Simulated scan of single mutants.
Amino acid sequence: MTINRRRRSRQKRKMVRLAMTALLAFGFGFYAGTGIGNPEGPTVAADEADVHIVKDGETLWDIARSVADARGQDIRETIYEIQINNGINEMDNLRPGQKITIR
């Protein structure tokens, strides 16, 4: 019985080592594979963006209204896009002379 126990113990250790080696190889391959092709990471293509300079008394709704009409969008979608693209919260007030990027 002792010999059989030793054999089983050795077999278990071999299986554990094999599994660990396979996981290590998979992890290394996955890590190395993420950088292949473009070592600098993803790039964003240059896009055409309009810059709107906020006038005194102008609101985000005023700015978004003409953009939404031209695109055939709901004005709420346009406002949301402008907020996201410019880091504007709902609580932020626009300032005269502030530059708003419209994409």
Rank of each mutant, 00 (worst) to 15 (best):
L60K: 06
I84T: 13
E90D: 15
G41Q: 09
A45S: 12
T2V: 06
N89K: 10
Y80M: 05
D92S: 09
I102W: 01
G72A: 09
D69T: 02
P39Q: 15
I53D: 00
M15T: 06
E81I: 04
M91S: 14
L18G: 10
N93A: 10
T21D: 03
R10Y: 10
Q83F: 12
A25R: 07
R76V: 05
R6Q: 08
E77W: 12
N89Q: 08
G41H: 08
G27M: 13
A68M: 02
L94E: 09
R8F: 10
Q83L: 12
Y31N: 03
Q83N: 11
Q83S: 11
Q83K: 15
E81D: 10
R103P: 15
D62I: 02
G29T: 13
K55E: 09
G87M: 14
D56G: 00
E48K: 15
Y80I: 00
Q11E: 14
D92F: 05
I82D: 08
D62H: 05
I36Y: 14
I84Y: 14
G41R: 06
P42T: 01
T78W: 06
G37F: 06
T101D: 01
A22G: 03
A46H: 10
S9M: 12
M91D: 11
G57C: 05
M15F: 11
I88Q: 07
I36C: 03
P96C: 00
N93W: 01
R65L: 09
F28L: 15
G97I: 07
T101C: 01
I88N: 04
E48W: 05
L94C: 09
Q83R: 15
N4P: 15
L18H: 07
N86T: 06
I82C: 08
I3G: 02
S66L: 05
L94T: 04
R65M: 07
Y80F: 13
P39G: 06
E40R: 10
T34E: 11
V44Y: 07
T21I: 11
L23K: 13
E90L: 13
A70E: 09
R13P: 00
Q73D: 15
Q73N: 13
T101G: 00
L60Y: 03
F28W: 08
T2P: 00
D92W: 05
R103H: 07
T21N: 06
A70V: 06
G97V: 04
R103L: 07
M1N: 14
M15Q: 14
L94V: 06
E77N: 03
